[in-house]
Simulated assay, not measured.
Amino acid sequence: MDKIRKHIIFYGYVQGVGFRWKASSTARRLGISGWVRNLPDGSVEMEAEGTARDIEDLIQAMEDHSWGSVERITAENVPLHNDYNFEVR
């Protein structure tokens, strides 16, 4: 399957609730590389690289995160980086 990379921003109650930890553990389980970090405006930014289906599963897992709440998501395709791990920044 072909890989894609998405730049994603999650808006809502997504900081201080274990969101980045959940993103990291889920991405690693799904074999997705990339990174996740908090932004000053209270949103969380992520780049995820893997199959389209695995990235959809990651986004769904983040929407279903039990401690916070995602109000809105923006996502766009970006060039592949071919990195090997997923990190919390």
Results as ranks from 00 to 15, higher is better:
1 M>V: 10
3 K>F: 08
4 I>F: 04
5 R>F: 00
6 K>P: 02
6 K>A: 00
7 H>E: 12
7 H>P: 03
9 I>T: 11
9 I>G: 02
10 F>W: 04
12 G>A: 06
13 Y>V: 13
13 Y>D: 10
14 V>D: 08
15 Q>C: 06
15 Q>N: 10
16 G>E: 07
16 G>Q: 06
16 G>Y: 04
19 F>H: 11
19 F>R: 04
19 F>I: 11
20 R>P: 08
20 R>L: 06
21 W>R: 13
21 W>S: 11
22 K>C: 12
22 K>W: 09
23 A>V: 13
24 S>H: 09
24 S>D: 10
26 T>L: 06
26 T>P: 08
26 T>M: 13
29 R>K: 15
30 L>Y: 09
32 I>H: 05
32 I>L: 11
33 S>Y: 08
33 S>M: 07
35 W>P: 02
35 W>E: 07
36 V>P: 05
37 R>W: 04
37 R>D: 09
38 N>A: 06
39 L>S: 14
39 L>C: 15
40 P>T: 10
41 D>Y: 06
42 G>A: 05
44 V>A: 03
45 E>T: 02
45 E>G: 06
46 M>Y: 00
47 E>F: 08
47 E>I: 09
48 A>N: 10
48 A>I: 03
49 E>D: 09
51 T>N: 13
51 T>K: 14
52 A>S: 15
52 A>Y: 11
52 A>D: 13
54 D>T: 13
55 I>M: 01
59 I>C: 12
60 Q>D: 15
60 Q>C: 07
61 A>T: 14
62 M>W: 00
62 M>A: 07
62 M>F: 01
63 E>P: 04
64 D>Q: 07
64 D>E: 15
65 H>D: 15
67 W>K: 14
67 W>H: 15
67 W>I: 12
67 W>C: 10
68 G>R: 04
69 S>F: 11
70 V>L: 03
70 V>E: 06
70 V>K: 03
71 E>S: 08
71 E>N: 06
71 E>W: 02
72 R>E: 04
75 A>M: 14
77 N>Q: 14
77 N>A: 13
77 N>Y: 08
79 P>Q: 05
79 P>K: 00
82 N>A: 10
84 Y>A: 11
85 N>I: 09
86 F>A: 01
88 V>H: 02
88 V>L: 08
88 V>R: 12
89 R>S: 09
89 R>C: 05
